[in-house]
Every structure is written in structure tokens, then in C-alpha cells.
Amino acid sequence: MIEKIDGFAYILGDDINTDDIVPSHTLTMRDVDEMAKCTLEFIDPTFAKNSAQGNIIIAGDNFGTGSSREEAVYVFKVLGIKAIIAKSFARIYFRNLINLGIPGIIVSWNESIFSKGDNLEISLNEGVITNKTKGVKIEFEKLPNFLTKILEEGGILNQLKKTLKG
């Protein structure tokens, strides 16, 4: 069982791509904390600094489109992002999210449901997001069991390590 996720909404639009999340010039950086400081720098240069106040990302369609660069998920992990809610995800990005243990949740939403700074509680087990600020509940389709298990293990490599040792 995964505990409920509690955090604050940060709103992004459609087609946020992997170059938006981690620009190419950061990809040869060996220090991930330095790389994480550049997260979304062309869209919101203050994002990394203020990530604690916006640690659940709410995005539009096709989130994470573009490159296979897993850094575009990893920097969010480094910055303490707890979940990403989007209208739809790019295929590779969705895999990368689950593999690194960050829940990706598909929800159709509008501004009456989520706004910046809203306090949200996500129950992956029940498939429900509670917007505590607005007093609304939103249901979503739960992930298949085998993906939930990867999240419970904190990522696919933790799971694989156990299997290889077992």
C-alpha cells in the first residue's frame, strides 16, 4: 500500500517537452543538483527554488513529449516532486516516471478543479484526488497492479534488485 500523497499544485500547460524540463545544455552536467537548478528554467526560472510550494505538478496534454532523456524525470525527483497529474503523457516519459517511482496520473481537468497552490491529497489505492482548498474530489483510473507495485518499491530497479537476489 502506498500512503496518501499530500502536496501543493503547480500548474503547467500543454506539450511541456523534455527540453523545457531539462534543456540540452544541462545534459552533460555531472552534478545532478546543478542540473536540477535548471529545471523548467525557460518557462519559470523560480521553479526549482520554490518547488516545495508546488510539489504536485498539474499539466495539460502530452506532458513530457520529446526526448527519452530520463533526466527530465530525475530532476523532479531531486526537487521532491511527489506526483504528476496530466491530461495525457508522452509514452517514454510515462514509463520513466513509474520506473523512478513517481506516480503519473491521467485526469481531465480545468481551472475550476485545480489552481496554483491548491492543497491536494492523492490516494493511489482509491483512485481519488481530494482538492482540500476547493473542497472537491476527482476520481481517476487506477494504474494496473504491476505498475502500482513498481511505485510501492520506490522504482523498478529496487524491485529488480530483489528479484535478481531472490
Partner: peptide, 9 residues
Amino acid sequence: GIGATDVSV
């Protein structure tokens, strides 16, 4: 295409 963790798998 796949990401780094999938490559590891």
C-alpha cells in the same frame, strides 16, 4: 525509445 532505467532493466 526508452529511458535510462528501462535500459538498465
